[in-house]
Simulated scan of single mutants.
Amino acid sequence: MAIGSGLGAQLGISAESTYGTFVAPAKFVEFTKESLVLKKTTAQSAGIAAGRLLPLSSRRVVTQTEGSGTVDMEVTNKAMGLLLQALMGTSVTPVQQVATTAYLQTHTLADTAGKSLTIQKGVPLTTGTVTDKTFLGCKVVSAEFSCEVGQMLTATYEFDAKACDEAQTLATASYPSMSPFHFGQLAVKTGTFGTEAARDGIRKISVKIERPQAVDRFYAGQAGTKKEPISNDQVKITGSIEMDYVDTTLDDLHTSDAATSLVVEFIGPIIASTYTETFRIKLPAIRFDDAPPTVEGFAVVKPTLNFTGLYDGTNQPVIEYMSTDITL
Rank of each mutant, 00 (worst) to 15 (best):
T112H: 04
H254T: 04
L136G: 10
K40W: 15
C138G: 09
I271P: 03
F181L: 06
A198E: 15
Q105C: 01
T225Q: 14
K162I: 07
Q120P: 03
F183R: 10
L186F: 10
T195K: 09
R217A: 10
G122C: 14
D111H: 04
G191A: 02
V300A: 07
A143M: 13
A102W: 03
H254Q: 14
F31R: 11
V207N: 00
G20N: 11
I326Q: 05
A99T: 08
F279K: 07
V130I: 12
Y275D: 06
N315W: 05
R280K: 14
L305Q: 13
A187P: 01
A110I: 09
Q64M: 09
A173I: 10
T93C: 02
T314P: 07
L253A: 00
E296L: 14
N306L: 14
A46W: 05
G184W: 03
A198W: 09
L283Q: 14
T106P: 00
T327P: 01
D165C: 00
V264N: 00
A171Y: 03
T308R: 08
Q168A: 02
F135A: 04
F159Y: 12
K227W: 14
G221P: 03
L305V: 04
S240F: 03
E148A: 11
T195P: 01
E296S: 10
G309S: 14
V23Q: 06
D251H: 09
V92D: 06
G12Q: 08
G194M: 07
L328S: 02
I237E: 02
F298N: 13
G128Y: 02
T276Y: 12
G20C: 15
Q10F: 10
N315H: 12
G137E: 07
K33N: 08
S57G: 09
I209R: 12
G221I: 13
G122E: 15
A197S: 11
A24S: 13
F218V: 02
A49P: 06
K208R: 13
K189W: 01
T225E: 11
P303Y: 09
S231I: 08
V318Q: 07
L328P: 00
S146G: 01
Q85G: 10
L83V: 04
A155I: 00
T172R: 12
R280N: 05
L253M: 02
A143P: 03
L125Q: 09
P25C: 08
G69L: 04
T32V: 04
V29W: 08
E148M: 15
L54N: 14
V98E: 04
F22S: 07
A272T: 05
G114C: 03
R203L: 13
T101I: 11
P303C: 05
T108V: 11
L38N: 15
T195E: 14
S5E: 08
G184V: 06
P124E: 07
A26C: 03
H254Y: 15
Q222M: 12
F31Q: 14
K133R: 15
V62C: 06
E296F: 01
S116V: 04
R211I: 13
M152F: 14
